[in-house]
């Protein structure tokens, strides 16, 4: 589905335009199960938590902590990306009109926020939530609400 499928409709009192969003529960569940399995494997073999922002941040820290497993986890992510690029290119469907300076600001916010929160969608959203950590659940709710707020602001009035 491409950007040309954008539809406009009325949302009181604003006219909103949105891309058609299709619910894909089967691939979503299968992917979610794989994510949970990967996190379980990393804990079983290495005794580590699959929190991506923590793993990446630890790579550049000048401490004596082991770096090899972190680097190899990231290499695994990148290799997975190469496999997906060949086998499932639709996995990378982007947004229409993504200005690179906007992406730079977005990336900066995500990097700063993930470190201040001590984790991101994987560390808090999956691993912490699965362990019923109240802190993780609250951080997860916070970033979903903040994200929804931005999407509400940026996508109204025919942005897409």
């Amino acid at each position: 589905m491409s950007a040309s499928d954008a539809v406009c409709y009325n949302f009181l009192p604003l006219q909103r335009c949105a891309i058609m969003n299709d619910f894909t529960p089967v691939s979503a569940l299968a992917g979610g199960v794989l994510i949970g399995l990967a996190a379980t494997l990393l804990l079983l073999f290495d005794g580590r938590i699959a929190g991506v922002s923590g793993i990446v941040a630890g790579l550049s820290r000048p401490d004596g902590e082991p770096k090899a497993w972190r680097a190899m986890f990231v290499v695994g992510l990148l290799c997975g990306g190469v496999v997906l690029r060949i086998a499932r290119p639709s996995a990378f469907e982007g947004l229409p009109h993504t200005a690179l300076p906007v992406m730079a600001v977005a990336g900066l916010l995500v990097g700063l926020g993930a470190r201040a929160a001590g984790g991101c969608t994987s560390g808090h959203g999956v691993c912490g939530t699965a362990r019923l950590s109240l802190r993780s659940i609250l951080v997860t709710v916070t970033f979903i609400v903040a994200g929804a707020f931005v999407v509400f602001l940026t996508h109204r009035g025919g942005a897409s």
């Binding site: 992917g31 190899m72 695994g76 992510l77 996995a91």
Partner: peptide, 23 residues
């Protein structure tokens, strides 16, 4: 093991739709 973990994690992210900003 970390490499395999990262690989499976990435495949899960891709299959699930998390790697698509549109989703």
């Amino acid at each position: 093991a970390a490499f395999v973990g990262g690989l499976v994690f990435a495949l899960g992210l891709g299959l699930s739709g998390m790697t698509s900003p549109r989703k």
